[in-house]
């Protein structure tokens, strides 16, 4: 059997595929972050908490109202997006003219409060959420056993990420959004409701986080800390990709999933740090990030 550095090549394929699955989550979350930063200039630290909320709303829908996974996949993001838009209208909108450090601090505080509330209500051990029966089981790919559900996660993530990218870069609505961030006053003068557009953008970014949360629920235990464990990595992804770059966030998300997957094979101890080492290197060589324009 062919081996690379003592690892059978087939096993390596398996690990790369797993890395891609983790990358799918990084991509979905960092896309939302990049979107919010790009258009609102807010470093949204509550993104992880809202991702966790997505998973919890799915759990509540199932256990309190008997609504299944597929319904949750639609309803949970809407609920969380509405919650996010309320936050934006009542609090975040006051910070646009200030240094973005204020936004960072406010959203960080919000994240702690949201997590604290869920921790108080549901404890820390987490709640079980079963894989939907239509996606249970797995395929034997020869080099590894792939659970169908994980395949679905990658597919859903690719569709969502590409869809969002097309929406922002290729449609008229996206053009308004981009123009609004460049010069809000001018765009408003053309009769476009910029504040509404910004609120909807925040809702959309947050909704993406919630969808990622629902997708994650059957894989990880649904617990109040699931977001804070992930958010720092996702921020590193955004920094490496280039703050505010939509395509950068998506591509870097998948790439770093792969890098992390390889690290788990060759030196598992470093799996949680490799992304930050890369971030350090990228910041040294290309401070604006891989896809950032820099100014």
């Amino acid at each position: 059997m062919t081996t690379i550095l003592g690892i059978p090549i087939q096993a390596l394929f398996g690990q790369l595929l797993l890395g891609l699955i983790n990358g799918a989550f990084y991509a979905m979350l960092s896309l939302g972050l990049a979107l919010i930063f790009g258009l609102l200039n807010i470093v949204n630290f509550s993104h992880g908490a809202l991702y966790m909320m997505g998973a919890f709303v799915a759990w509540l829908l199932l256990n309190e109202m008997g609504l299944d996974y597929w319904t949750a996949l639609i309803v949970a993001p809407i609920v969380v997006a509405l919650f996010g838009m309320v936050l934006e209208r009542t609090m975040l909108c006051r910070l646009y003219k200030l240094d973005n450090l204020y936004g960072l601090l406010l959203t960080f505080g919000l994240a702690l409060i949201i997590e604290g509330v869920f921790r108080q209500l549901y404890g820390i051990s987490g709640m079980p959420y079963a894989v939907p029966s239509a996606l249970a089981g797995g395929w034997n790919l020869g080099f590894m056993y792939l659970p169908i559900y994980r395949g679905w996660v990658v597919l859903a993530s690719v569709v969502l990420c590409l869809g969002s990218w097309l929406l922002i870069e290729k449609t008229k609505l996206g053009a308004y959004l981009r123009a609004g961030t460049e010069n809000a006053t001018l765009v408003q003068a053309f009769g476009i409701n910029v504040p509404l557009m910004i609120t909807l953008t925040y809702g959309f970014g947050v909704g993406l986080a919630a969808i990622a949360g629902v997708l994650a629920a059957p894989i990880y235990s649904v617990n109040p800390l699931m977001g804070s464990n992930l958010i720092i990595v996702v921020f590193a992804v955004v920094v490496i990709g280039g703050m505010g770059s939509i395509m950068g966030a998506i591509v870097t998300g998948y790439l770093l999933g792969l890098v992390e997957g390889l690290t788990k094979v060759f030196y598992p101890e470093a799996a949680s740090t490799v992304i930050f080492v890369l971030m350090g290197i990228v910041l040294l060589i290309k401070p604006a990030g891989l896809f950032g324009k820099g100014n």
């Binding site: 690990q15 699955i21 590894m144 464990n229 992930l230 598992p268 101890e269």
Partner: peptide
Amino acid sequence: ALRHPFNNADFSSFLLQAQA
């Protein structure tokens, strides 16, 4: 034996190595 980071979320990669 395989040493994984504390408070890790995804174990699939480690599990496959254990399985192998």
